[in-house]
Amino acid sequence: MTELTAEQIDTGPRSGWQAPNLWWLVLPAVLFLILFFLIPVLSLFATSFDKAFAGVITFQGNLTWDNYERIFTRALYYKAIYKSVFLGVAVSLICLVIGYPLAYVIARTLRPGTATLLTILVLASMQLDMVIRLYGMMVLMGDNGLINNGLTALGIISEPLPLMYNDFGVVVGLVQVTLPFMILSLIGAIKSINPALEEAARSLGSSRWHVMRTITWPLSLPGVYAGTLLVFALAISSYVVPALMGGWKVITLPIHIYQQIAEVGRWQFGAAVAVILFLTSLFAMTIYILALRRNAGGRV
């Protein structure tokens, strides 16, 4: 590892601060990750194959598929998988539909000030503590929330609309939380399309919508794939949104994990649910990273 082959010297990065051995630089970070990331996560995976005992966190070594069998045979659990995936798909599609136009405006606006302002707004709303944003959502959408309150005051409705503590509320919450990620994925993809392509199509007789359909949209597909998968992975992994906006009535995989542990204390089974969740989101994320690499032409 410390010796470079002749080929590596020829093709490697140019000399700079690269003494033959730079391992001491990365060593602290790597040790940290091995100790506090790889070992814990792999142990968790191992635990998921252990026989479940309520309230016990020890590794018994009784290897079994029991936990996984339970997940896929009991409706309660496989419905949670189904629910998570369904919510993830709905959220990604909604984010795409409402995020694409804003990304397009940011990428194509002629006023650089507008683009910068909008980008900062999107970035800031992405970075703001989720729980704080959910506070706003809940004040808005609760039975006594601003919407129901206002509509009742105006005499439009007499009974509050069920906006929260159901699938609808969870979807709206997840869209709010994940939308910035979709927009940021799309801006890059749309920006990288040379505006001359759109103008060329216009001059050949295309209307604005036809250009959108035949030129802009197909060329922005890498960003569309990346954004959709990223949002999907984030949506199915979220615990706090279904917990608050669903009020524990919408049971997704992360909710299950927490319930198994906090309420029933079945660690081994919770671990198995976690593995399933991880594999699903890893699958989406892997495709996401591949799409991103293709998008960036291998620069990532």
Binding site: R108, L121, M137, P195
Partner: peptide, 25 residues
């Protein structure tokens, strides 16, 4: 104007989705 009106409207909705919860807080 390279940006269709429909796009501007939906972009406005997206901005509302992002900013309204924060303003409510």
């Amino acid at each position: 104007k390279p940006i269709p009106l429909t796009f501007r409207i939906i972009a406005g909705i997206a901005l509302l989705v992002l900013l309204v919860p924060v303003s409510i807080v």
